[in-house]
Design a protein around this nucleic acid. Sequence first.
DNA 1: CGGAATCCTGAGCGATACTG
DNA 2: CAGTATCGCTCAGGATTCCG
Lengths: 126, 126
Amino acid sequence: MVTKQFEGSPADADLTRADSLAREIFSDVANKWALLIIEALGERTLRFSELRDGVEGISHKMLTQNLRMLERNGLVERNVHPTVPPRVEYTLTEPGRALWEMTNEMCGWTHRYLGHIEASRRRFDA
Amino acid sequence: MVTKQFEGSPADADLTRADSLAREIFSDVANKWALLIIEALGERTLRFSELRDGVEGISHKMLTQNLRMLERNGLVERNVHPTVPPRVEYTLTEPGRALWEMTNEMCGWTHRYLGHIEASRRRFDA
DNA sequence: CGGAATCCTGAGCGATACTG
DNA sequence: CAGTATCGCTCAGGATTCCG
Protein backbone atom coordinates (compact mmCIF):
# COMPACT_ATOMS: atom_id res chain seq x y z
CA MET A 1 0.00 0.00 0.00
CA VAL A 2 1.27 3.10 1.41
CA THR A 3 4.51 1.56 2.49
CA LYS A 4 6.61 2.19 -0.58
CA GLN A 5 10.11 3.55 -0.40
CA PHE A 6 10.87 6.54 -2.59
CA GLU A 7 14.28 7.82 -3.56
CA GLY A 8 14.56 11.23 -5.13
CA SER A 9 12.54 11.84 -8.28
CA PRO A 10 10.72 15.14 -9.01
CA ALA A 11 7.30 15.11 -7.40
CA ASP A 12 8.29 12.84 -4.57
CA ALA A 13 7.75 15.37 -1.84
CA ASP A 14 4.01 15.27 -2.50
CA LEU A 15 3.90 11.53 -2.87
CA THR A 16 5.67 10.79 0.37
CA ARG A 17 3.61 13.41 2.15
CA ALA A 18 0.36 11.91 0.88
CA ASP A 19 1.71 8.54 1.80
CA SER A 20 2.57 9.41 5.37
CA LEU A 21 -0.80 11.09 5.71
CA ALA A 22 -2.43 7.90 4.49
CA ARG A 23 -0.53 5.86 7.05
CA GLU A 24 -1.60 8.23 9.75
CA ILE A 25 -5.24 7.99 8.78
CA PHE A 26 -4.97 4.24 8.57
CA SER A 27 -3.53 4.10 12.06
CA ASP A 28 -6.28 6.32 13.40
CA VAL A 29 -8.98 4.19 11.90
CA ALA A 30 -7.48 0.74 12.33
CA ASN A 31 -8.18 0.52 16.01
CA LYS A 32 -10.70 -1.42 17.95
CA TRP A 33 -12.72 1.39 19.47
CA ALA A 34 -12.91 3.56 16.40
CA LEU A 35 -14.23 0.70 14.32
CA LEU A 36 -16.71 -0.39 16.96
CA ILE A 37 -18.04 3.14 17.19
CA ILE A 38 -18.40 3.39 13.43
CA GLU A 39 -20.13 0.05 13.46
CA ALA A 40 -22.58 1.20 16.12
CA LEU A 41 -23.37 4.40 14.26
CA GLY A 42 -24.10 2.49 11.09
CA GLU A 43 -27.63 1.64 12.17
CA ARG A 44 -28.65 5.15 13.09
CA THR A 45 -27.70 8.40 14.74
CA LEU A 46 -26.90 7.91 18.40
CA ARG A 47 -26.46 10.08 21.45
CA PHE A 48 -23.32 10.05 23.51
CA SER A 49 -24.87 7.96 26.25
CA GLU A 50 -26.42 5.54 23.78
CA LEU A 51 -22.99 4.99 22.34
CA ARG A 52 -21.50 4.55 25.77
CA ASP A 53 -23.64 1.55 26.55
CA GLY A 54 -24.04 0.48 22.96
CA VAL A 55 -20.35 -0.08 22.47
CA GLU A 56 -19.95 -2.03 25.71
CA GLY A 57 -16.66 -2.05 27.45
CA ILE A 58 -15.72 1.42 26.31
CA SER A 59 -14.99 4.00 28.97
CA HIS A 60 -16.35 7.51 29.04
CA LYS A 61 -12.90 8.81 28.28
CA MET A 62 -12.12 6.51 25.38
CA LEU A 63 -15.48 7.29 23.85
CA THR A 64 -15.02 11.08 23.85
CA GLN A 65 -11.45 10.71 22.76
CA ASN A 66 -12.31 8.52 19.78
CA LEU A 67 -15.33 10.62 18.88
CA ARG A 68 -13.13 13.72 18.75
CA MET A 69 -10.71 11.91 16.53
CA LEU A 70 -13.44 10.68 14.23
CA GLU A 71 -14.97 14.12 14.11
CA ARG A 72 -11.62 15.67 13.31
CA ASN A 73 -11.18 13.28 10.42
CA GLY A 74 -14.65 14.10 9.19
CA LEU A 75 -16.06 10.62 9.68
CA VAL A 76 -18.72 11.53 12.18
CA GLU A 77 -20.74 14.69 12.57
CA ARG A 78 -21.46 16.09 16.00
CA ASN A 79 -24.79 17.80 16.61
CA VAL A 80 -25.47 19.66 19.83
CA HIS A 81 -29.08 20.36 20.73
CA PRO A 82 -29.02 23.36 23.06
CA THR A 83 -31.61 21.93 25.40
CA VAL A 84 -31.34 21.21 29.06
CA PRO A 85 -30.13 18.68 29.78
CA PRO A 86 -27.86 18.80 26.75
CA ARG A 87 -28.38 16.34 23.95
CA VAL A 88 -25.51 15.53 21.62
CA GLU A 89 -25.99 13.30 18.63
CA TYR A 90 -23.42 11.65 16.42
CA THR A 91 -24.01 10.73 12.81
CA LEU A 92 -21.85 9.15 10.16
CA THR A 93 -20.77 11.42 7.35
CA GLU A 94 -20.46 10.04 3.85
CA PRO A 95 -16.82 8.97 4.27
CA GLY A 96 -17.80 7.49 7.61
CA ARG A 97 -20.63 5.59 6.01
CA ALA A 98 -18.27 4.23 3.39
CA LEU A 99 -16.02 3.06 6.16
CA TRP A 100 -18.99 1.51 7.87
CA GLU A 101 -19.59 -0.73 4.90
CA MET A 102 -16.16 -2.13 5.50
CA THR A 103 -16.66 -2.67 9.21
CA ASN A 104 -19.77 -4.53 8.19
CA GLU A 105 -17.76 -6.79 5.97
CA MET A 106 -15.35 -7.30 8.81
CA CYS A 107 -18.20 -8.41 11.02
CA GLY A 108 -19.37 -10.74 8.31
CA TRP A 109 -15.85 -12.05 7.95
CA THR A 110 -15.58 -12.63 11.67
CA HIS A 111 -18.73 -14.68 11.74
CA ARG A 112 -17.93 -16.58 8.59
CA TYR A 113 -14.59 -17.75 9.95
CA LEU A 114 -15.50 -18.10 13.59
CA GLY A 115 -15.26 -21.85 13.36
CA HIS A 116 -11.97 -21.92 11.47
CA ILE A 117 -10.43 -19.54 13.92
CA GLU A 118 -11.66 -21.26 17.02
CA ALA A 119 -10.33 -24.56 15.70
CA SER A 120 -7.01 -23.04 14.74
CA ARG A 121 -6.65 -21.59 18.21
CA ARG A 122 -7.20 -24.93 19.86
CA ARG A 123 -4.60 -26.51 17.60
CA PHE A 124 -2.12 -23.75 18.31
CA ASP A 125 -2.62 -23.76 22.05
CA ALA A 126 -1.50 -27.36 22.19
CA MET B 1 -22.83 -6.28 15.45
CA VAL B 2 -21.74 -8.56 18.10
CA THR B 3 -22.79 -6.11 20.75
CA LYS B 4 -26.28 -7.28 21.41
CA GLN B 5 -27.67 -7.66 24.88
CA PHE B 6 -29.27 -10.97 25.71
CA GLU B 7 -31.58 -11.71 28.58
CA GLY B 8 -32.34 -15.30 29.40
CA SER B 9 -33.80 -17.38 26.60
CA PRO B 10 -32.88 -21.03 26.00
CA ALA B 11 -29.80 -21.28 23.80
CA ASP B 12 -28.33 -18.02 24.99
CA ALA B 13 -25.24 -19.54 26.51
CA ASP B 14 -23.96 -20.48 23.07
CA LEU B 15 -24.97 -17.23 21.50
CA THR B 16 -23.24 -15.07 24.03
CA ARG B 17 -20.17 -17.28 23.91
CA ALA B 18 -19.95 -17.03 20.14
CA ASP B 19 -20.53 -13.35 20.51
CA SER B 20 -17.76 -12.77 22.97
CA LEU B 21 -15.48 -14.88 20.83
CA ALA B 22 -16.38 -12.71 17.87
CA ARG B 23 -15.55 -9.59 19.82
CA GLU B 24 -12.23 -11.04 20.82
CA ILE B 25 -11.34 -11.90 17.24
CA PHE B 26 -12.44 -8.49 16.10
CA SER B 27 -10.21 -6.87 18.69
CA ASP B 28 -7.26 -9.01 17.67
CA VAL B 29 -7.66 -8.14 14.04
CA ALA B 30 -8.73 -4.51 14.31
CA ASN B 31 -5.31 -3.22 15.14
CA LYS B 32 -2.83 -1.27 13.13
CA TRP B 33 0.04 -3.74 13.01
CA ALA B 34 -2.02 -6.83 12.32
CA LEU B 35 -3.74 -5.17 9.39
CA LEU B 36 -0.51 -3.77 7.99
CA ILE B 37 1.07 -7.20 8.16
CA ILE B 38 -1.89 -8.77 6.41
CA GLU B 39 -1.71 -6.07 3.80
CA ALA B 40 1.98 -6.71 3.22
CA LEU B 41 1.46 -10.45 2.87
CA GLY B 42 -1.27 -9.92 0.31
CA GLU B 43 1.21 -9.48 -2.52
CA ARG B 44 3.21 -12.59 -1.82
CA THR B 45 4.82 -14.83 0.77
CA LEU B 46 7.42 -12.95 2.79
CA ARG B 47 10.22 -13.80 5.14
CA PHE B 48 10.42 -12.41 8.61
CA SER B 49 13.09 -9.88 7.70
CA GLU B 50 11.24 -8.83 4.57
CA LEU B 51 8.22 -8.13 6.70
CA ARG B 52 10.33 -6.24 9.20
CA ASP B 53 11.41 -3.66 6.68
CA GLY B 54 8.34 -4.00 4.51
CA VAL B 55 6.00 -2.89 7.24
CA GLU B 56 8.15 0.08 8.24
CA GLY B 57 7.97 1.37 11.73
CA ILE B 58 7.26 -2.00 13.27
CA SER B 59 9.70 -3.30 15.84
CA HIS B 60 11.18 -6.77 15.92
CA LYS B 61 9.11 -7.54 18.97
CA MET B 62 5.79 -6.27 17.65
CA LEU B 63 6.30 -8.18 14.46
CA THR B 64 6.86 -11.55 16.14
CA GLN B 65 4.11 -10.86 18.60
CA ASN B 66 1.56 -10.08 15.91
CA LEU B 67 2.72 -12.92 13.70
CA ARG B 68 2.18 -15.35 16.54
CA MET B 69 -1.27 -13.98 17.09
CA LEU B 70 -2.15 -14.19 13.42
CA GLU B 71 -0.78 -17.70 13.25
CA ARG B 72 -2.77 -18.68 16.28
CA ASN B 73 -5.93 -17.42 14.67
CA GLY B 74 -5.09 -19.29 11.49
CA LEU B 75 -4.72 -16.20 9.32
CA VAL B 76 -1.11 -16.74 8.39
CA GLU B 77 0.87 -19.91 7.94
CA ARG B 78 4.43 -20.18 9.20
CA ASN B 79 6.94 -22.23 7.21
CA VAL B 80 10.36 -22.92 8.58
CA HIS B 81 13.06 -23.99 6.15
CA PRO B 82 15.63 -25.91 8.17
CA THR B 83 18.59 -24.30 6.47
CA VAL B 84 21.38 -22.34 7.97
CA PRO B 85 20.86 -19.54 8.44
CA PRO B 86 17.19 -20.26 9.14
CA ARG B 87 14.59 -19.07 6.69
CA VAL B 88 11.05 -18.54 7.88
CA GLU B 89 8.29 -17.63 5.48
CA TYR B 90 4.82 -16.35 6.18
CA THR B 91 1.87 -16.87 3.89
CA LEU B 92 -1.77 -15.88 4.11
CA THR B 93 -4.21 -18.70 4.66
CA GLU B 94 -7.62 -18.59 3.04
CA PRO B 95 -9.26 -16.71 5.93
CA GLY B 96 -6.24 -14.41 5.94
CA ARG B 97 -6.63 -13.80 2.25
CA ALA B 98 -10.27 -12.96 2.73
CA LEU B 99 -9.28 -10.48 5.36
CA TRP B 100 -6.69 -9.09 3.01
CA GLU B 101 -9.39 -8.17 0.53
CA MET B 102 -10.83 -5.98 3.22
CA THR B 103 -7.59 -4.31 4.12
CA ASN B 104 -7.29 -3.58 0.44
CA GLU B 105 -10.62 -1.86 0.46
CA MET B 106 -9.50 0.07 3.49
CA CYS B 107 -6.46 1.25 1.60
CA GLY B 108 -8.66 2.23 -1.28
CA TRP B 109 -10.96 4.03 1.09
CA THR B 110 -8.04 5.89 2.63
CA HIS B 111 -6.85 7.15 -0.70
CA ARG B 112 -10.31 7.99 -1.94
CA TYR B 113 -11.03 10.21 1.04
CA LEU B 114 -7.55 11.56 1.64
CA GLY B 115 -8.63 14.97 0.45
CA HIS B 116 -11.86 15.08 2.46
CA ILE B 117 -10.06 14.05 5.57
CA GLU B 118 -7.17 16.43 5.20
CA ALA B 119 -9.62 19.29 4.66
CA SER B 120 -11.75 18.24 7.61
CA ARG B 121 -8.70 18.19 9.82
CA ARG B 122 -7.71 21.68 8.87
CA ARG B 123 -11.21 22.88 9.61
CA PHE B 124 -11.27 21.11 12.95
CA ASP B 125 -7.86 22.30 14.05
CA ALA B 126 -9.04 25.88 13.81
C1' DC C 1 18.31 -15.10 10.64
C1' DG C 2 14.45 -15.70 13.47
C1' DG C 3 12.91 -15.86 18.05
C1' DA C 4 12.70 -15.68 23.24
C1' DA C 5 13.64 -13.31 27.42
C1' DT C 6 14.62 -9.34 30.22
C1' DC C 7 14.48 -4.80 31.55
C1' DC C 8 12.62 -0.23 31.63
C1' DT C 9 10.16 3.79 30.27
C1' DG C 10 5.97 6.36 29.08
C1' DA C 11 1.83 6.42 26.67
C1' DG C 12 -2.74 4.73 27.38
C1' DC C 13 -6.38 4.15 29.93
C1' DG C 14 -9.50 3.92 34.07
C1' DA C 15 -11.31 6.36 38.01
C1' DT C 16 -12.68 10.38 39.97
C1' DA C 17 -14.10 14.91 40.46
C1' DC C 18 -15.69 19.39 38.51
C1' DT C 19 -18.19 22.50 34.98
C1' DG C 20 -22.03 24.20 31.90
C1' DC D 1 -26.22 14.75 30.00
C1' DA D 2 -21.93 15.68 27.78
C1' DG D 3 -17.38 17.11 28.23
C1' DT D 4 -12.83 18.40 30.39
C1' DA D 5 -9.15 17.84 33.68
C1' DT D 6 -6.22 15.57 36.95
C1' DC D 7 -4.06 11.74 39.06
C1' DG D 8 -2.07 7.24 39.18
C1' DC D 9 -1.12 3.00 37.60
C1' DT D 10 -0.78 -0.69 34.49
C1' DC D 11 1.16 -2.70 30.67
C1' DA D 12 2.23 -2.10 25.75
C1' DG D 13 6.04 -1.92 23.52
C1' DG D 14 11.08 -0.31 22.42
C1' DA D 15 15.93 -1.49 23.23
C1' DT D 16 18.98 -4.89 24.25
C1' DT D 17 20.89 -9.36 24.91
C1' DC D 18 21.35 -14.22 24.23
C1' DC D 19 20.23 -18.72 21.84
C1' DG D 20 19.72 -22.29 17.95
